[in-house]
Amino acid sequence: MAEVTDGEFTAFVNDRGEALLRVAYALAGSQHGAEDLLQNALAKAYTRWPQIRGDAEPYVRRILYHDQVSGWRRRARRPEVPLDALPEVPAERDSGHDADLRMLLRDALLTLPPRQRAVLTLRYLEDLSVEQTAALLGCRTGTVASQASRALAKLRRLVPAFAEYADRPEVSR
């Protein structure tokens, strides 16, 4: 029985591990943090494998997000990137403007608190609605909206080029 469980579990991780690791990376912001976050979620899934085997991926994703935002697990001192470590904003727009903007945004994302980054990951990596995001995180839709808005406000402050984009048509919440 244990061999069956181990075999099924290993096959699941081999099949879905890479995709789950990308989600974990977006949440944790580092390779080490992502592996740790994912391995912890997978370990919990392993202990419950007979009950969740047909529904393992949603289970693991839910744990990933909950671990990321849980007060007990959350880093009291977050590994944020100091503002002066952010790359300089290009003075002129050029052909590499979009790439520059993405790079600046990517770095700025790392400065967000875990809950805000989790909301943005669910909304923009997983393409979930506000309602779906709230259901997964176990909070109200208003909280999702306010967390997203605060995250966007901070990104605008950190990346003026993004603020220019955002000030044209408003970013939806």
Binding site: E18, Y25, Q31, D98, M103, L109, T121, V171, S172
Partner: peptide, 20 residues
């Protein structure tokens, strides 16, 4: 929708793709 949303989506996916 907006260019800002697309830029943000691309940045989040860039971040996720950094996973080895």
């Amino acid at each position: 929708s907006s260019p800002a949303e697309e830029a943000l989506r691309a940045a989040v996916r860039d971040l996720a793709r950094q996973a080895r």
